[in-house]
Write a protein that binds this DNA or RNA. Structure first.
Length: 576
RNA sequence: GCGCUUGUAGCUCAGUGGAUAGAGUAUUGGCCUCCGAAGCCAAGGGUCGCUGGUUCGAUUCCAGCCAAGCGCGCCA
């Protein structure tokens, strides 16, 4: 409808252009002016033409206006400012979007932009070594909202969580749990400061003790045998302990490893699920090793001459692809690096036939992009299909003080804690209310103590008000779909219609730019327009025609708020 | 040092090659016998970091500088 209207206006301008400057090929831009006095649409066409035609822009504008063919929708066209052409629509045209919302209902705003293309969105992918913290929450909220927007814009979206279940961090978690277990049995092994400190580790140790008693007990001397001291290299100390644990426990270490992994993954899954964040796939890093894909990937790179050996390690020549230095894929000790499995993972993604793959990473991974893209190119794949969206870290403030968010130190505010304090709706909305590449100062005190000031309530309140009015009318909502809308002539009403008309454009923009925050800002604007209208005019008036038309407008606004909030994972309560 | 990101109202943040740069919050003053005051209306508050360049026009694009965050491992 409104797309047709825009097409119609563009067509009018194109014909005027042909009359004034035959042969001029210009991309005509049509924008919605910020000020109502500048019309419903404006174009800078005359300003663009002024130079090639060597004419005064206002004069060009004047000639374009006089060449503009008559239209059933355009009330007037006028020249303004430096040479803008402002187009004013008649009321029938301005009411069109309202009719479109009523007709399409929950599908209003849906787009064919994605054309059913398969697109994978991988996000969160936090190591399952402890509870998710508020930093992960941002990636979760962003990824989930973006995925919904993309799906609404016509993409076939696949959400995926990459589970880092193969690396050293998981070994450290298993070790940490075992050490806590020994501690519970009063075995005197000092708990290393760089092991996982969180209380959940002790809880898991406790569970293991309850389930298996003393089965995993060993004397302190054997546990510490041959382990280098904490100084000078505390990581070497940790590695020594891991080596001993694996030897002493054998298959039992694998059991503890598997146990802590499944515990943490289950916790993570529950946490995200309660946050309204769901994944189609949980992809195991370890499976890349089990299926031999990591090995095959490196071999393939080697075959094509992108690998060389130096100092006993295998290096990928990523400098050939614009990286600042070459990167190790297989260490001197034979173990593959995280990078190696990540190349294999991306190869696997491409082999699954996605038209586009989006990785959502924390901004601290930005230096990682050139090497991954380089590897993809080296494998003969199309790097343009991979897009990386960086999400800046949330910097957490408590009582005006910056708070640490390290998982290993155990000093962090968990996502679960945050959700319980401020609620899922406020948390989801708060996270997505800034563009993703903007640093986020997350003021805990503000979020927790003043949650009523969170703008999400402003929008939800508008929704509840609309529900309330419609309930008091107590009629059949289906009857509103056929209401005669032409009695709506007030500026506020027509402004609301214009706002409704923007929604499909906002969705397409958000999908194109990976910017779900624009949906949040749009909803704030829509709610503001409605609150303003609601205070100025009465909806349930005596005149039955006007009442029905206003109720139809209310229904449409409620629908778009509902749709928008759903995309952001925020509830639309009927009362609050 | 190099790279990426950021710099807009007291604070937190949107936005744009175009007309008078916006919102929330904070401050001040109004609006409920009337559909929900978690709301509305109004006022004050700005060198869009600085300097150049491109352009009819730059807060927006480009370069340099200043400042902040992050990254620069045979960690993941």
């Amino acid at each position: 409808m409104i797309a047709d209207l825009k097409t119609h206006l563009l067509d009018l301008l194109r014909r005027a252009l042909a009359g004034v400057a035959p042969g001029q090929q210009l991309a005509i831009t049509l924008e919605r002016p910020k000020q109502a006095s500048h019309g419903d649409f404006a174009t800078n066409l005359a300003l663009q033409l002024a130079k090639p035609l060597r004419m005064n822009p206002r004069e060009v504008a004047q000639r374009l206006v006089s060449e503009l063919p008559p239209s059933p929708w355009v009330a007037k066209a006028e020249v303004a400012g430096a040479g803008f052409i402002n187009l004013f629509l008649n009321n029938a045209a301005r009411l069109q979007p309202l009719g479109a919302v009523l007709e399409r209902g929950e599908h209003y705003g849906r787009s064919r932009l994605g054309a059913g293309k398969k697109i994978q969105v991988e996000f969160v992918s936090a190591n399952p070594t402890g509870p998710l913290h508020v930093g992960h929450g941002r990636g979760a909220a962003y990824g989930a909202s973006l995925s919904c927007v993309l799906a609404f814009a016509g993409f076939d979206v696949h959400r995926e969580y990459y589970v880092n279940d193969a690396g050293r961090q998981m070994d450290i978690l298993a070790l940490s749990t075992w050490l806590r277990y020994l501690e519970l049995h009063e075995v005197a092994v000092p708990f290393p400061p760089n092991a996982y400190q969180g209380a959940y580790v002790t809880e898991m140790a406790h569970q293991i003790r309850v389930a298996h008693g003393p089965r995993y007990l060993h004397e302190a001397e054997v546990v510490l045998a041959g382990v280098p001291g904490l100084e000078p290299d505390k990581e070497a100390h940790l590695d020594g302990l891991i080596t001993n644990a694996k030897e002493l426990l054998g298959d039992d270490f694998a059991y503890i490893h598997a146990h802590v992994l499944s515990e943490q993954l289950a916790d993570c899954r529950d946490d995200l699920s309660e946050f309204g964040v769901h994944f189609e796939h949980w992809f195991s890093e370890r499976s890349l090793y089990d299926t031999g894909l990591v090995e095959r990937t490196v071999a393939q790179l080697e075959k094509h001459g992108h690998i060389y050996t130096q100092d006993g390690a295998k290096w990928f020549r990523s400098t050939s692809f614009g990286d600042e230095k070459d990167r190790v894929v297989q260490r001197e000790n034979g173990l593959y690096t995280y990078f190696a499995s990540d190349i294999a993972y991306h190869l696997n993604k491409f082999e699954r036939g996605f038209d586009r793959v989006i990785d959502i990473w924390g901004a601290d991974h930005h230096g990682y992009i050139p090497r991954v893209k380089g590897a993809i190119q080296a494998l003969g794949l199309d790097t343009a299909k991979l897009e990386v969206a960086l999400v800046q870290f949330a910097v957490l403030y408590r009582s005006g003080q910056k708070t640490s968010m390290s998982t290993r130190s155990g000093e962090f505010v968990t996502l679960r804690e945050l959700r319980h304090e401020v609620g899922n709706d406020a948390a989801r909305f708060f996270y997505v209310l800034r563009k993703s590449d903007q640093h986020l100062d997350f003021d805990l005190d503000l979020a927790k103590s003043q949650s009523n000031e969170n703008p999400v309530y402003y929008i939800q309140y508008a929704h509840a008000r609309l529900c309330s009015v419609l309930a008091q009318w107590n009629g059949e909502e289906d009857d509103l779909l056929a209401a005669e809308l032409s009695v709506l002539t007030g500026e506020r009403e027509l402004a609301l219609c214009a706002r409704l008309a923007e929604f499909p454009e906002v969705i397409e923009g958000a999908a194109r730019d990976y910017a779900p925050h624009t949906v949040a800002f749009y909803l704030k604007d829509l709610a503001a327009d409605f609150h303003s209208y609601y205070n100025a005019e009465r909806i349930l008036v005596e005149d039955p025609d006007l009442r029905l038309a206003r109720l139809a407008l209310a229904l449409a606004v409620r629908q778009v708020i509902q749709t928008g909030l759903r995309l952001l994972g925020v509830s639309a309560p009927h009362s609050m």
